[in-house]
Nucleic acid binder design. Sequence first.
DNA 1: CGTGAAATTCCTCATGA
DNA 2: TCATGAGGAATTTCACG
Lengths: 150, 150
Amino acid sequence: MDDMDRRIIGLLAEDSRRALADIGGLVGLAPSSVNERIRRMVAAGVIRRFTVETDPSALDLPLLVFLRLVLRPEADATAFRQAIAGHPRILECHHVTGAWPWLIKLRVETVAEIEVALDQIRASGFLGQHETTIALSSAVAGVFVPATMP
Amino acid sequence: MDDMDRRIIGLLAEDSRRALADIGGLVGLAPSSVNERIRRMVAAGVIRRFTVETDPSALDLPLLVFLRLVLRPEADATAFRQAIAGHPRILECHHVTGAWPWLIKLRVETVAEIEVALDQIRASGFLGQHETTIALSSAVAGVFVPATMP
DNA sequence: CGTGAAATTCCTCATGA
DNA sequence: TCATGAGGAATTTCACG
């Protein structure tokens, strides 16, 4: 991971379909050298995957929702992690500092779907107190990559 | 945006370097038809860009931080949006429901950088009360796409 | 670790159904 | 809207500096 690698990553983030020759021209390397660096970064896990950023509304997920919650006292955090992993609407779930130890970010099609998601989380049996926050607009929207179906 | 388009997007999200022939084989379409659908989705803005997902730690941004804040009463929300747009560490900034109207997500290299970022936001002159939350671990990490340099 | 050229694979585009 | 096929690019590989 030297500076050259970082420049290549920046260019790929902008447009990962760029030709190796183009990238090479911009960073001052032969196409095959660029190719070799990309191959290494993929192998090292620096690059996790080549993907597409999409418009969430076009995929019928216009609502961005944050859930902050505490688990029930007897809950097993490991089991909770597994219970929510793989939920198609949950984009992120973090264990965080503060009074509400869990922060979940999800995207849904309608407000009704918020309740459905909450019920599904509740079904794990670990849900304690919780708080729902809805995004009204976004000054910086973030990158949306659709879930991959299994 | 029919179901065929959705399947193609799912496959591209998984690996956007897949050959058109592969995708066509999986969804039952000729390579040129897949190409045409992708071209249309890019033109329509359904696909925003082809990009790469990376490991934030490998790019020296291991710390995930959430800021919740209120603006000062006299603050102009539009000016605030512009002030934070383009900040390299701010991945997301949403106007949300609830007692803390703004939610910012950022990635930084060290805890010291949290304070730097806060000071930069404060420099806009709009920052009121605020609360910092640090992610300890992530059950669902989310997708990290590095910022593109201007 | 980087290069350049050969060999392969892929994309593009015009045409027709 | 989709499929076919030819021509032109791009990627990949590899022997060498």
